[in-house]
Amino acid sequence: MSDGLRLSAKTRAEIERLTTVYPVRRSALLPGLRLAQREIGWLPREAMDEVAEIVGVDPNACYALATFYDLFYREPVGKYVIGVCEGLACHLGGSGRVLGWLKERLGIGPGETTADGLFTVRTFECLAACDRAPCALVNDEYVGPLDEARLDELLRELRSHPNWSRVSGVGGRGSGASIPDPQYPTPDPRHSTTDTRHPAPGEGRS
């Protein structure tokens, strides 16, 4: 990962392992992309192509999948992506004000990243956490309900807390609300290995 656009051997190996987990090799594409983004922080073309190559699908398939999902970033984002919910409950609860405070504090609006590369602000349609309106998703962590004071505290914490992970990474605060790190099953011996429909290059010789 010399240029920061390519996957480490560890991630490659993990994706390789994932391809044996599912009855269909190609099912590893989605978790594979997620692992790639966890490592690099976003999904550069090089990483997408790499995942496609490991899984053995056309790079177009990777591109289609990555553009379908809102949480895959195809451009670099800040270390912390603050996604403000704009669903109905949050809207009524003041998500507009939250965005306004962020603009005041960070100088950026939705879709923008601070010059120091620390923060990206974006919006979500609905985070399905209406009980915490107005809420936001910071990387994989829910925060909310937000008012001005709590937002300031959050920003202070993000700036100072070294354990906050990168995008799609491990939640750092142990709040229990974080999206769990992907846990993938080990291969089911009933599947894989006997499927010779898609021989990998070199297979059939050894």
Binding site: V57, D58, N60, A61, A64, T67, F68, Y69, D70
Partner: peptide
Amino acid sequence: GDETLTVINR
């Protein structure tokens, strides 16, 4: 039998 053309976005 190929994916030389695809659908992007949502």
